[in-house]
Design a protein around this nucleic acid. Structure first.
Length: 431
RNA sequence: GGUCCCGUGGUGUAGUCUGGUUCAACAUGCCACCCUGUCAAGGUGGAGAUCGCCGGUUCAAAUCCGGUCGGGACCGCCA
């Protein structure tokens, strides 16, 4: 018999069906016994007779079973239907007790215990829902950009030189030669603007920084976008807002059940305020009484304050901060012609946390040579990158979204490890 | 890299300050039995922890001290 999914039972009342899935829970009452079966679509209640019950005797939750029975309307069942007169077949028995319960309303174990047992812990319905939403966000990302003439690319993660400079790169041996794991697709996506004008990439980024925070990973999934023929940085920021809006709203529409399950709400976009770093710092001084006006960057506390301000004064969960000091930003960021001390760069803060970093880039070959000399970089190490600019590059810019951070804020998680399937941090490399 | 906090049955916690017959407890899970409507099922009973590890103080240590290992939070840094 063909398999029926749990979610499709209401449309099959009166029919004989076969369900296949995991034993989510068993509730025994002596004369009437329920088995809650879980598959990819959800859960279904089945009523087992003594013979069927006997087959799972001694077996634990998560045993994989097939259940055949008749779909009957039943007000007392959660979905309004249940499967009766069920016969049962064990497909894959489980004899070991689970490390912790995954069929309760809430998940009990600490984050560390959960992550140590992620292969089974991720089956907890709200956990699975979280990562289904992640899939929805990526789908929305692709959908929006593809619909706007962007081309998806995949660039190498094995690098012969460190693109961003700095010491936070993972070094490795590549057939006897030194190599590095890519910190970002930055240089390649800029090169590809010369080919497609508009490109995007979903891929891993590796950072060897020993950060001990709730919002950093040593490997994360970066959502990179780069576009040419821009008239200014605002074009890039406009795209970014529209993109995130589509990602979130389409995900909420695609997976309403999951969104409800984890309490994901669509953030407020009304008007995303844009202010320069210096104006932001003056605002913090005025509103919160802390003088950070000489700092080259925002502190996490500053970001929280700005998030609060945007929420209260602009009804927005987002706020752009622009024009960071040129010396503080990556070398390919374009200095503001009106004031070269500051760059045409921006960060997008989402609910008080940095989510996106972007900029208009330098697009003139000669200027790259000047910048590299000023920063003591060797142009020979970037000959491939420079070639793209030597042979004609329009004004261009782009950004990178931290995908796990987006999900983290959307579902209200306290730690980015909760919205990463198998997180990699300073002391976690397994599972 | 800096600062601070926490390690108690499978899981989550109480007990630690004020050391000793409320000191090994509670909830959940597991096992057995009861129950014809549960959906965090309920009831009765049972098994399960030398209180992370090593050392010290003391008549006596889960409890105080030191070290070590593991975990967490904040800062730096960033997405």
């Amino acid at each position: 018999m063909e398999r029926t999914l749990a979610a499709d039972l209401p449309g099959k009342v009166g029919q004989r069906v076969k369900l296949e899935g995991w034993v989510h829970a068993v509730r025994k009452f002596g004369q009437v016994n329920f088995l809650i079966l879980r598959d990819r679509s959800g859960t279904a209640q089945t009523v087992l007779d003594p013979a069927a019950l006997e087959k799972i005797s001694g077996l634990q939750a998560e045993t994989v079973v097939a259940v055949e029975g008749t779909v009957e309307p039943e007000e007392r069942a959660t979905n309004g239907v249940e499967v009766r007169d069920a016969s049962l077949q064990v497909i894959s028995p489980v004899t070991d007790v689970l490390p912790f319960e995954i069929n309760k309303r809430v998940l009990k174990p600490s984050l560390d215990v959960f992550l140590n047992n992620a292969p089974v812990g991720l089956r907890f319905p709200a956990k699975a829902a979280t990562f289904r939403l992640f899939s929805g966000l990526l789908h929305g990302f692709r959908e929006y950009l593809s619909g706007n003439d962007f081309v998806e690319i995949h660039t190498p993660k094995l690098m012969g030189s460190a693109s961003e400079g700095g010491a936070n790169v993972f070094a490795m041996d590549y057939f006897g030669k030194p190599a590095f794991l890519a910190q970002s697709p930055q240089l390649y996506k800029q090169i590809m603007v010369g080919v497609f004008e508009r490109v995007f990439e979903i891929g891993p980024a590796f950072r060897a920084e020993e950060h001990y925070t709730v919002r950093h990973l040593n490997e994360y999934t970066s959502l990179d976008v780069e576009m040419g023929f821009i008239s200014g940085m605002d074009d890039v920021m406009d795209l970014l807002v529209a993109l995130i809006q589509h990602m979130v709203t389409s995900t909420a529409e695609r997976y309403p059940r999951e969104a409800e399950m984890v309490g994901m709400t669509v953030p407020r976009f009304a008007t995303v305020p844009r202010l320069t770093l210096r104006d932001a710092q003056r605002l913090i001084l005025d509103r919160y009484g802390e003088d950070h006006t000489a700092e080259p960057d925002l502190s996490p506390q500053d970001e929280r304050w700005l998030g609060e301000w945007a929420s209260q004064e602009h009804d927005s969960d987002f706020v752009f901060v622009t024009h960071y000091p040129t010396a503080k930003r990556a070398w390919y960021s374009k200095p503001d012609p009106a004031d070269p001390e500051y760059s045409l760069s921006f960060d997008l803060i989402f609910k008080g946390q940095e989510l996106v970093s972007g900029a208009q880039r330098i697009n003139e070959y000669e200027e790259y040579l000047r910048v590299m000399e000023a920063r003591n970089m060797n142009p020979a190490s970037f000959s491939g990158f420079l070639e793209a600019f030597k042979y004609g590059m329009p004004p261009e810019g782009g950004f990178a979204i931290g995908s796990e951070r987006l999900l983290m804020r959307l579902v209200g998680a306290d730690n980015i490890r909760e919205t990463t399937l198998f997180p990699r941090d300073v002391n976690r490399l397994e599972p």
